[in-house]
């Protein structure tokens, strides 16, 4: 089957297809209203999944940012990061009096080609923008909101780091639907590392560590679950929400999020040497512990 670019550049379509019909209300989360002028490409709001209220975060590639010329086509710039962060805090605020079991889930629909590589971004601090969003996601998780990342299109480098990688669970459509998961394409890696492309392409077959694609990331534990059929996305997200919620209620935080994906990666045979390094360091640390606590 030929490759289909199902949702690349179509974050808005992903919202329509995954959420209940006409349920998405943009820029509204609980009693909060977000500024529609700010970061027009950052789509945030409320929707329902089979009746359950969720916060949705996505990118609309058709809306460039009029103030920052590098922010278009789904790029996450500074305004976008801060708006996403505001959406996290609005979600926490909306449910602040609810018990853990009723905290609304947050669904990140991931289709972004990167953070904005611009001069003014570097002057003002793109770094702080992306980190602020990441800390806000952590705040939401710690407040008890299940956070699910669903890769529907591009999940590239720094933008994937801020928009998705810290989720409790990450799901992805396979490469045949046009999903892209990488730091940069193998062709660019060849240019920068000066390693011939043919050699890289040969190595990619056996080593997922620099390969581009959701399936390789899955092997490393970076993605929890592949959703083979796009029609199953809603159900997969719902199931993961209830699993995350259950684990959190049982206090099993260590089975969620990025550190647990290290465990998942080891089970799948990826990042084996990471585990060796950690094991050795722990042994060295434990020998020193009594004097450290003294």
């Amino acid at each position: 089957m030929a490759k289909q670019f199902l949702y690349v550049g179509k974050g808005d379509q992903a919202i329509t297809d995954i959420c209940d019909a006409d349920s998405f209300v943009e820029n509204k989360i609980g009693d909060s209203r977000l500024d529609a002028e700010l970061a027009p490409g950052a789509m945030v709001g409320e929707a329902t999944l089979d009746g359950e209220l969720v916060t949705v975060i996505a990118n609309n590639s058709k809306r460039p940012n009029p103030r920052f010329r590098v922010v278009y086509n789904g790029v996450i710039g500074m305004e976008e990061c801060y708006k996403f962060a505001q959406a996290m805090y609005a979600t926490i605020e909306a449910d602040k009096d609810k018990p853990l079991k009723d905290k609304r889930p947050i669904v990140l629909l991931i289709d972004t080609p990167g953070n904005s590589p611009g001069k003014v971004e570097e002057i003002v601090g793109m770094t702080k923008g992306t980190a602020s969003y990441q800390f806000a996601i952590e705040d939401a998780r710690h407040a008890g909101h299940p956070v699910i990342g669903m890769i529907v299109g591009r999940a590239v480098s720094g933008a994937f780091l801020c928009h998705g990688l810290l989720s409790d669970r990450i799901l992805a459509l396979p490469m045949k639907y046009g999903t892209i998961v990488h730091v940069m394409p193998t062709t660019s890696i060849a240019v920068i590392t000066k390693i011939p492309l043919e050699r890289l392409n040969e190595l990619v077959k056996t080593n997922p560590v620099f390969a581009s694609g959701a399936e390789f990331f899955y092997k490393l534990g970076g993605i929890n679950e592949m959703v083979e059929d796009p029609k199953d996305m809603k159900n997969a997200i719902k199931r993961n929400i209830s699993e995350v919620r259950k684990l959190r209620l049982e206090g099993k935080e260590d089975q969620l999020g990025i550190w647990h994906r290290g465990v998942v990666g080891a089970e799948r045979g990826g990042r084996a040497k990471r585990l060796n390094a950690i094991t050795k360091m722990r042994a060295e640390y434990e020998k020193l512990l009594p004097e450290l606590l003294d």
């Binding site: 730091v183 890696i189 620099f210 390789f216 970076g222 990025i258 990042r271």
Partner: peptide, 15 residues
């Protein structure tokens, strides 16, 4: 870049 995917994951661990 030689081990880009592992590099990406460790950054999230740090964060």
């Amino acid at each position: 870049l030689h081990e880009a995917n592992a590099g990406l994951l460790m950054h999230s661990e740090c964060m």
